[in-house]
Design a protein around this nucleic acid. Structure first.
Length: 420
RNA sequence: GCGGUUAUGGUGAAGUGGUUAACACACCGGAUUGUGGUUCCGGCAUGCGUGGGUUCGAUCCCCACUAACCGCCCCA
């Protein structure tokens, strides 16, 4: 049997690669606008990094990591997300000491999670993410959200919903956590197995459970908003006020918990149009304890990550076409042996002059060569045959209007450049 | 990790336990001795996901495997 692509992966063929290029270009453009700088980190890291950074109780660490030992017996893992790596690099290169603070960073690259594939969920997928390290200013929270929305808007997506929540600072979280345990403990037996395990480890995530979503205790569960201390409450109010000022609509959802352990204060998601069950396009939040957790100084941080794959699905649902029209400037049609000898030479001259040019390589007849030129959306066709070689002139046909002219060989590039 | 559906050419898809596997699109060629997007005509699966089994015989029946899609869990 022929070898197949690994499960949960996919090839981006030329037709789609154009879309990827366009999306990536827009991401970089938006980041430049907001003054975010690119950072590139390795695709694998020490397994410890994710265990400590992402959190031992998360599904990602418990069952989704692509981990392996290398020949030097090191425990390594294909990165399941980008934040831990960025923070590791920030600490390792002491970027907290750099003069330009905060560090506003972005990345685009593949991530890996061992999951059951489905539309919008793959084992290798691509994230565009931003991280801001070193600032606890609420305007940064709003800026990061505004950046993501600007990106989607520039791409052309319309059906977007921003969902917002605050998990508060550690003190608030602790108070909430205790209230949650007190609330659920007496009747925890009525909940699913996962929730029973979550009770002591991370009761917050019980709220995230879909299975027991309709349980009366779920509805009456203590909400984080009632446990935010004054500082946390004020912070969240400021973030909301800035978003209001920017004219950004959002929906508050006190059950928006997010799956990674490092989040506190502001958390957010952007939902989009989708055919299936998966609607989350982007997720993020503040993680003020993560830098110190990974061995750096006490440093605030915030970031988001969004999936290019899901973005493409949303584009499909909204029926938005992204294709850049990559036209060919000219196509050389050769008739007869002498012309076929001449064609590659002529082609080379055209290309050296900066014209996007191609010819037939399938021994097609004249008609077939024209069809090929048409398929490639060539704007001009240059026809050469015995007569043209004798006269040192080519027939140049404008494919848009069908007109054609005789142009001397040494005038060709000038003529085309003028017309294009 | 669990449950469901599916698997025929480059693509979309019909189909039958028994010599040649519909049809459409795409592609190639011809009608137009050197001209595209229209029309007409012709060509185009030694093969029906992979591996076994049942059978005189299997693309069609059975089993396993693999993969895709959908749902659950969770997430981007």
């Amino acid at each position: 049997m022929t070898i197949q692509i690994p499960r949960g992966t996919y090839d981006v063929l030329p037709e789609d690669a154009v879309k990827w290029q366009k999306i990536e270009a827009i991401a970089r453009e938006i980041c430049a606008l907001f003054n975010y700088k690119e950072i590139r980190t390795p695709i694998f890291e020490s397994t410890d990094l994710f265990q400590r950074g992402v959190g031992d109780t998360t599904d990602i660490v418990q069952k989704e990591m692509y981990s392996f030992k290398d020949r030097g017996d090191r425990d390594l893992t294909l990165r399941p997300e980008g934040t831990a790596s960025v923070v590791r690099a920030y600490v390792e290169h002491k970027l907290y000491g750099a003069p330009n603070q905060p560090q506003k960073l972005y990345y685009i690259g593949p991530m890996f999670r061992y999951e059951r594939p489905q539309a919008g969920r793959n084992r290798q997928f691509t994230q565009f993410g931003c991280e801001v390290l070193g600032s606890a200013d609420p305007s940064i929270d709003a800026e990061v959200i505004a950046l993501a929305l600007s990106f989607y808007r520039k791409i052309g997506l319309k059906k977007l919903k921003l969902v917002l929540n605050s998990l508060g600072d550690p003190e608030s979280r602790k108070a909430h956590r205790e209230a949650l345990i007190a609330h659920f403990k007496p009747s925890i037996g009525e909940f699913c197995e996962d929730c029973q395990n979550r009770l002591e480890k991370n009761p917050l995530r019980i709220l995230d459970c879909k299975e027991d979503h309709n349980h009366p205790l779920m509805v009456s569960a203590p909400s984080i908003v009632d446990y935010l201390n004054e500082a946390s409450h004020d912070y969240f109010e400021k973030v909301k006020a800035i978003l209001d000022g920017m004219g950004i609509d959002y929906e508050l959802d006190p059950t928006l918990v997010r799956g990674l352990d490092y989040y506190n204060h502001t958390t957010f998601e952007i939902m989009g149009a989708s055919q299936g069950a998966i609607t989350t396009l982007m997720g993020g939040g503040r993680y003020n304890g993560l830098v110190s957790e990974l061995g750096g100084p006490e440093t605030p941080g915030i970031g988001f990550a969004l999936s290019i794959e899901r973005l493409l699905l949303a584009l499909e649902v909204e029926k938005i076409e992204l294709d850049a029209d990559a036209l060919l400037d000219c196509f050389v049609v050769a008739i007869g042996d002498p012309a076929e000898q001449k064609a590659p030479v002529l082609l080379n001259q055209l290309r050296q002059a900066g014209l996007r040019a191609d010819k037939d390589y399938m021994a097609r007849k004249v008609k077939g060569q024209f069809k090929q030129a048409d398929r490639e959306r060539a704007r001009f066709v240059i026809v050469i045959g015995d007569e043209e070689l004798d006269a040192q002139k080519a027939v140049v046909k404008n494919m848009a209007d069908g007109t054609q002219e005789n142009i001397a060989f040494d005038e060709l590039t000038n003529y085309l450049k003028e017309k294009l």
